[in-house]
């Protein structure tokens, strides 16, 4: 079942188009990463999905309803963490979460459990104004998780979280998606999303430039696999005889070879045939960063060495 679908959704503000012809379909229980730089339209798309703003064009269906006209019952199934989440400074963390729990008609005991889950149990009785950025972010996450939402929207959820908390955060997300919650999150830190999201939606200047699972996006982009072969770089490049596009760094301790995905094994066999000339091999698949740079229309940086096909 499709949890979120948009059909050529667009949004204008004062005659300026901030979102244009965005069509996505997110199946239930999947985690989607919205990727794009500031002003790409990620937050606008989230606001449309939440029903906070109405699209100027196109259709949007979320959990079987039009979010712009859906009522209170619809919002009871949502969880949202806004970018730069703000709370009332004079309330304690526990008071804040209890307030939101009551507003969402969720048992206030769940609030205490969630505080514990995001690691705020000890700071629960401190006023929010004493919280660090990361603690506020965790409190924001806790309120988004109240009432086991069917759809969770997280705008830059991992800013201010240290690596341990980030890992825990993605564990929580995985637990939720396994239980059927659909998650849409945006982030600048692309590498951390890679292993943890099913789908990626890459946005640029209000348009969706790519949408799909990472594997098919990789294929579609046709980005090369980079193989770094260590050993005698000069001899290796002679031996390979121009069969692969390569980058030869100055110190010649290794050689970077680009090859299309479907020729990866061919390259690895060729390297294996080189015997002692090649001492080690690293295979680097195109990352989300590479995909992002590719789809957002920028050149992929190709290292520092001279570049030529021998």
């Amino acid at each position: 079942m499709t949890a979120v679908s948009t059909d050529r959704a667009g949004k204008d503000y004062n005659g300026r188009t901030v979102l244009d012809a965005v069509s996505i379909a997110v199946p239930e229980g999947r985690c989607v990463a919205l990727i794009g730089h500031n002003g790409a339209g990620k937050t606008t798309l989230m606001k449309i999905i939440l029903g906070l703003i109405r699209p100027s064009r196109g259709r949007v269906e979320v959990l079987g309803q039009d979010p712009a006209t859906a009522g209170v019952d619809f919002r009871a199934k949502l969880g949202f963490l806004p970018e730069n989440v703000a709370f009332h400074d004079q309330m304690t963390g526990a008071e804040t979460l209890r307030f939101f729990a009551r507003l969402k008609k969720v048992d206030t005991r769940e609030a205490a459990e969630l505080l514990d889950r995001v690691g705020l149990a000890r700071a629960a009785d401190q006023k929010v104004k004493t919280y660090s950025k990361g603690m506020r972010q965790r409190l924001g996450l806790a309120q988004a998780l109240l009432g086991r939402p069917k759809l969770l929207l997280l705008d830059e959820p991992t800013t201010g979280l240290d690596p341990v908390l980030r890992t825990e955060f993605f564990e929580i997300i995985r637990g939720l998606t396994e239980a059927g919650t659909t998650v849409i999150l945006s982030s600048h830190i692309l590498t951390e999303l890679e292993a943890r999201t099913d789908l990626a939606a890459i946005m640029r200047d209000g348009r969706l430039v790519a949408f799909g699972d990472l594997e098919s996006l990789r294929q579609e982009a046709g980005l090369p696999v980079t193989v770094r072969a260590r050993g005698d770089a000069v001899e290796l490049s002679k031996k390979l005889n121009g069969a692969f596009h390569k980058t030869l760094p100055r110190n010649s301790a290794y050689i970077d070879l680009d090859c299309p995905v479907d020729r990866k094994m061919e390259l690895l066999r060729a390297l294996a045939d080189c015997g002692d000339l090649c001492t080690d091999v690293d295979v680097r698949l195109p990352t989300l960063d590479d995909l992002y740079l590719h789809y957002s229309g920028r050149a992929i940086s190709s290292g520092t060495g001279r570049e030529d096909a021998v």
Binding site: G71, V72, R75, L78, F80, V85, L103, Q143
Partner: peptide, 9 residues
Amino acid sequence: LLMLTYPVS
């Protein structure tokens, strides 16, 4: 913004 996403009219 956050409050408007809650089940409150």
